[in-house]
Structure formats: C-alpha cells, structure tokens
Amino acid sequence: MSSVSFVVREPIRTVASTGVVTVDGARIGSLATHPSLNQRNLDGSPIWTITHVPSGMRMGSDTGFLSEAQALDFIKALNALPFDWTDSRNLRKDAGMHAAFESLAYVCGGVVLATEDAESPT
C-alpha cells in the first residue's frame, strides 16, 4: 500500500507495439496515466490509459478513461490497496489485484474500449 498521493508530471516510458516509447504523463507513485498512443474519443479528445512505471507495462488493455482527472482518481484508489506496485513480478499473476483493478476502474469512470489496443503487451 502506498501513501503517495502527489502528482508528478514527467515523461513516462511505456511498452507499445513498436517497442518502448516515451510520452508525457502524470505519475503517482509507481503508476502513471497518459493519453493512449492509438485511441481517441469520437470527439478527438484523448483516451487516458494507465502504465505501471517500473515495468512500462500498460495496465488494463481494454480499459480507458475519458479524462486525466478520472485516471488520476483511479490511480489514487489503486495506491490505497494493500498491493506493492513497485514489484512487477506478480502483476500478471495476482488474481485479486486483477479483480480489484477492474472493479475500481469502473467505479472511477473507466470505460471498456471497443477495439483491441496495440499498446498492451498481453
């Protein structure tokens, strides 16, 4: 569980279908949000995604947020969970984390993305 709650605006390294890319983002602890590399809303505004900073892995390949504020609220909720976000070894294996991620995403305004997102390594 992380008590970190302040936002740091900085370049974020994330894994994309073309390799590792750097995008402008907002980080709280080990989690960051940034505009999707390949998806936008119908009005042209960005879809906001979540990246695990230590690994560069996109989290929730079929989940996005309509605003940066929603994505940051989601990161704050995730940081309140008893999960060590600095350790990337168990991100794909922890079923409880996956269930919490999906539930909290929708509570915080997350939406299911209609098309497959090439940003996700999974």
Score class of each variant (00 low, 15 high):
113 L>P: 11
103 S>M: 11
4 V>T: 11
95 A>H: 09
40 R>F: 07
121 P>C: 06
88 S>G: 11
117 D>L: 12
39 Q>D: 12
79 N>D: 03
103 S>C: 04
34 H>I: 03
67 S>E: 08
76 K>E: 11
116 E>K: 13
107 V>S: 12
43 D>E: 08
102 E>T: 11
22 T>Y: 04
43 D>M: 05
20 V>L: 13
3 S>K: 09
85 W>D: 00
121 P>M: 09
36 S>Y: 02
5 S>R: 10
34 H>A: 06
61 S>L: 10
83 F>H: 05
18 T>S: 13
109 G>C: 06
104 L>E: 05
29 G>Q: 00
40 R>A: 14
77 A>Q: 11
45 S>G: 09
115 T>A: 15
115 T>H: 13
119 E>K: 02
63 T>W: 07
9 R>D: 09
82 P>V: 00
52 H>W: 03
89 R>N: 13
108 C>H: 04
98 H>W: 06
55 S>Y: 05
63 T>M: 11
13 R>E: 06
89 R>W: 09
31 L>I: 03
63 T>D: 05
67 S>A: 14
74 F>Q: 09
104 L>C: 06
61 S>Q: 15
23 V>R: 10
55 S>E: 04
80 A>T: 08
73 D>I: 01
48 W>Q: 00
63 T>P: 10
96 G>M: 08
108 C>M: 12
49 T>Q: 10
120 S>G: 15
